[in-house]
């Protein structure tokens, strides 16, 4: 998860015990071993094998993503794009893709740090700007976040993280009016499937060029398109508190998640088959549960059907209809 503009998972629908940290603890307690049949070593081998397969020839997607950005942006009547640049790999990839597709004068990244953000994130974001020749726009979200939480000093990290993600979204949509630019999403397929993002926060966008790439594939694309090594190799972090990493918080690695998701989603394997291949049963269960439990974040709100043509049910038009 790219840091800063993407925050901890919004689990407010998941019930009182379903917080992200609870998930992590459950997985940690289950530990390696448990009920899996093939054993953790086979699991690790499988992660490596599937990761390599996922990353193979991912460079082929690059010209398609350039064309996607050019065409889908133009279709909306916009020529420019705006997005949050966190210093993480996902938004860096989006920046490189957008500059190549649209030209740098059309690309408007916004850096939105909070006072607790890691200074290295800002440095990495600046590295991207320097490399691509983009102007720097920094909007510090500290005043608005602190003003709001002054009334709730005991607010949880979850509330704070989600609030930050939504403040950043609201800034991006406002900057969209300033630049006449379309907001781009930077959530990858792993985050979208796990629901590791904030609804109407970092998950909000008009177009998302990286939403069908697993984290493993984003890393491979990043290498192909020349994202600086320091950004590619640091541990992914939502950057909400010191030393936070996505993988600690999730309770599994992106490599594991990608392999398991690939088997469950793309290969349509039932979960017990995935466990037989050597993956930890606790992690497979956790991944599957997160995917299902957070599905609502990937959908429009449910509408009470009353008429014969209900939006989303039998009033069916492609999005491009309106363009």
């Amino acid at each position: 998860m790219a840091a800063m503009q993407e925050a901890v998972t919004d689990i407010s629908r998941g019930g009182p015990t379903n917080d992200a940290h609870g998930d992590a603890r459950a997985a940690a307690q289950a530990g390696p071993g448990g009920a899996e049949q093939a054993g953790p070593q086979e699991g690790a081998r499988e992660v490596g094998r599937i990761g390599a397969r996922l990353a193979t020839d991912v460079g082929r997607a690059v010209p398609i993503l350039h064309a996607f950005l050019r065409e889908e942006v133009r279709k909306t009547g916009y020529a420019d794009v705006v997005f949050g640049l966190s210093g993480g790999i996902d938004s860096a990839v989006v920046a490189y893709l957008a500059v190549e597709a649209l030209g740098r004068e059309r690309v408007h990244p916004v850096i939105m740090p909070y006072r607790a953000s890691n200074p290295e994130s800002l440095a990495d974001a600046r590295k991207v700007l320097a490399d691509l020749g983009l102007p720097e726009l920094v909007v510090d979200i500290t005043p608005q976040i602190d003003a709001y939480f002054a009334r709730a000093t005991d607010a949880s990290a979850l509330r704070r993280g989600n609030k930050m993600a939504r403040e950043r979204m609201s800034i991006l949509y406002d900057q969209s009016a300033v630049f006449r630019a379309l907001p781009l999403g930077t959530s990858n397929k792993t985050e979208l499937l796990l629901g590791y993002g904030t609804q109407f926060g970092d998950l909000a966008s008009a177009l998302n060029p990286v939403g069908d790439l697993y984290k493993t594939q984003v890393r491979a694309v990043a290498e192909v398109i020349g994202v600086p090594q320091s950004i590619r190799e640091k541990p992914p972090s939502a950057d909400l508190w010191a030393d936070q990493t996505d993988e600690d918080e999730l309770g599994f690695t992106y490599g594991e998640a990608d392999a398991i998701l690939h088997l469950l989603v793309d290969e349509r394997l039932p979960a017990p088959r995935v466990v037989e291949l050597g993956f930890s049963e606790a992690v497979v269960r956790l991944v599957e549960r997160r995917m299902r439990q957070n599905h609502f974040k990937r959908r429009m709100p449910v509408i009470a059907k009353l008429s014969s043509r209900t939006i989303g049910i039998d009033f069916r038009y492609p999005r491009d209809w309106g363009m």
Binding site: I64, A67, F68, E71, E72, K75, P318, R319, D320
Partner: peptide, 8 residues
Amino acid sequence: VGFEDGLF
């Protein structure tokens, strides 16, 4: 050629 709703 072209895109429709992200479909290439």
